[in-house]
Amino acid sequence: MSRTSSMTPPLTPVLLAGMAVRPLPLAPLQPILKGAMNAIANRHPDVFERLSCLDDPVFLIDPTDLPFMFLLTPDPLMPELKAVRGEEEEAINATATIRGPLLKLIELLEGETDGDALFFARDLVVEGDTEAVVALRNAVDGAEINVMEDVLSFLGPFARPAGGVAKSAISLMARAANDLEMLRAAAISPALRQSEIQAAKLKKLNEKVDGISRQSRRKRVREN
């Protein structure tokens, strides 16, 4: 089994669940992410060309059902993807942060789902420089990325036999998503949970127009 697991794409449900319940060192993940990033960069250089309108952006991608996040630096010469812990978020001066369930993020990456639609349904939360997020979304969507194939291509000679394994891993992951949801609700993402608790009182605050003190409508009398 050791051979299979070494070839398994980075984010199997088993692995995820494992990470979810106990603190896992992120170090073993980094070379896999690096390889995946290189594979994408080699196969889809246009992604980075489309991002050239931005000024050295850094994206924090936060799968809300995972206990860690991804830091993406889409430098055309040296694109980088690495895993970081939630505690590091403050220290990272991200251009923008995109939060959402992992499977939705992968679907988005593959262009299988519409970013706008996800956002309209509130599945994705965007913080920071919205232009950068829109550019990233457009660039990724234009690239026809297939996470499986791209990652498999980097796995090289083992790609073929691993293909089946990978595919079943994805479907496993889909099924495990429900389980993960439970885990998430339990412990993983306290911020999200907190916002759910707040939901009730939020509603009544919506459109609370009357209570807000109106800004001075007229400009102040000019001082001479």
Partner: peptide
């Protein structure tokens, strides 16, 4: 007719 934002800003 004045139109304000939800925060009461004209």
């Amino acid at each position: 007719l004045d139109l304000d934002t939800l925060d009461g800003e004209p």
